[in-house]
Write a protein that binds this DNA or RNA. Structure first.
Length: 115
DNA sequence: TGATTGACCAACT
DNA sequence: CAGTTGGCCAATC
């Protein structure tokens, strides 16, 4: 059994949470951007997998602020409802049409650039 | 323990 | 233009 050490030795999984929770309101980012910030661009899938387990996380993970590279709400179906993710984004002033974020690049928040 | 899948991305065919 | 493949890490079968 492996105890989770809080001293810098955190899994990729935990790193993703630390980034996602720091996303400012009204902004969005992509799975690949997070993975790239962590230094593993290829593991963008893992970011999504971490979101799947975000339910298991103790903190509230604003997964609705994380979309794919195209600005499409690919993971909206994991939000308990088909329009839940859209509502959450709309609540922050982000307009979503056809499951895609309008002016995605304007709302885009790059952890590697702004964090 | 090996094989498969997963809320992705980019390149190739 | 659409389908396939490779890549990365972790969890599930």
């Amino acid at each position: 059994m492996k105890d989770i050490d809080h001293t810098g030795d955190i899994s990729f999984f935990e790193k993703v949470y630390q980034v996602v929770v720091q996303i400012p309101p009204g902004r969005v980012t992509s799975y690949g951007a997070i993975a790239e910030y962590l230094g593993t661009k290829g593991s963008a899938r893992m970011v999504g997998w971490a979101m799947n387990a975000s339910h298991h996380a103790l903190q509230s993970i604003p997964a609705h602020r994380v979309v794919n590279r195209n600005g499409a709400l690919t993971g909206k179906r994991h939000f308990g409802g088909p329009d839940v993710m859209r509502e959450l984004l709309a609540n922050e002033g982000i307009q979503v049409i056809d499951d895609k974020i309008v002016n995605f690049e304007k709302h885009f928040w790059d952890p590697s650039r702004e964090l």
